[in-house]
Design a protein around this nucleic acid. Sequence first.
DNA 1: TGCATTTGATAACAAATGTTATCGTCTCAC
DNA 2: GTGAGACGATAACATTTGTTATCAAATGCA
Lengths: 202, 202
Amino acid sequence: MTIACKINKQMFDQFRNKFPLDDDKWTDYTNCFNRMEVPAKTILIQEGDIPKKAFLIEKGCVRAWFNNAGKDVTFQFFFENNTVASIESFRKKHPSTVTVETIEPSVLWFIRKEDIDRIIAEISEIPALRDKFTDAIFERTFVYMKHHFSFIKDTPQQRYLNLIKEMPQIIQRVPQHYIASYLGISTVHLSRIKSQLARGKS
Amino acid sequence: MTIACKINKQMFDQFRNKFPLDDDKWTDYTNCFNRMEVPAKTILIQEGDIPKKAFLIEKGCVRAWFNNAGKDVTFQFFFENNTVASIESFRKKHPSTVTVETIEPSVLWFIRKEDIDRIIAEISEIPALRDKFTDAIFERTFVYMKHHFSFIKDTPQQRYLNLIKEMPQIIQRVPQHYIASYLGISTVHLSRIKSQLARGKS
DNA sequence: TGCATTTGATAACAAATGTTATCGTCTCAC
DNA sequence: GTGAGACGATAACATTTGTTATCAAATGCA
């Protein structure tokens, strides 16, 4: 099921100029990534396990979800070039509170936690890269802040409109009941919102 | 209205052992903080302005809120020993998207952005302190993640119960309509939740 | 002290949202 | 192919939540 190899790293070329590293280090780091192709509904991280890997998506899409009173609640979606990790588990060494699962057949690059830790430790000594890392964490924080904002102030319809504005592809690629739980509403209500919008526009 | 001074830094002693710094640096850093006493409803950061200061609360409480279609929506509460800053504005040099305002008469210590930037740059060269800083950002991220979780999966009543569990003091110290908007519900509904809980328990 | 304002509870009604059930379409494994 | 299950729309009804209005108590300020 999993086909891993260490060749064909041209996928990473698009990121090359973003990291001021010499070629040796670059090769070292990109060599930590292993390619894998998996079908839809493959579980990458299991809720309750301590995750040992993070993933970069070359092709496909992925969701993070958790079980709430028997129902599955989707927490986040990931698409091409997103990195997927249970950052809270990585940081706190707790079991993951979410399951991470492919939605489509996907091409992923995985990297082991030991390697991530080493790379972070190394780049933290280089101010420019350390700042990049800090920026990345802040960006993630701001995304969640924005979600918090949105849940406090917006109606479900507005949240839906925001979502299709920010991730238009989501409509085509993600089953609607995942989107509904991500928005915190029932599938029936999402369906109603869609038909309202369709009627309103015609 | 603002009484600032540079003496009486014993307030900071409680944090002394958390920071592996020599005494000179410690004095340098704590000297960047200025004490101020302000009445309730003092605006510390104005929505739309580029904030120049951050605050540490010695005594009192503070809320961050923003204007949404004419209504004020409370985003976050702060109590003793919390630090208050518009981190997104600091990081991105954007105008603040929230107003920060005292709820009670408060004793605060403020620090200027230039000083923060210098201190962060300096401690980033010391691995132990750099890690503390990174941890702090992650912690903030996890708090917002938890909020996001909660809005997706919990009812308003559950969110209210969570809140009084995590910040019991909030009930005594914060007007209920601020709490309602923080929970994303109307004041009437919060009132109903409270009376339901009271009836259920008796 | 006394008055204006803020705060909070409650009722009545309106609107939003959830639940359950049904149906048609689509997809995918065999 | 084909049959089971996944998916999405819709209806009918139940429940939750919001809105507006009213009142009483608490609070702050002149």
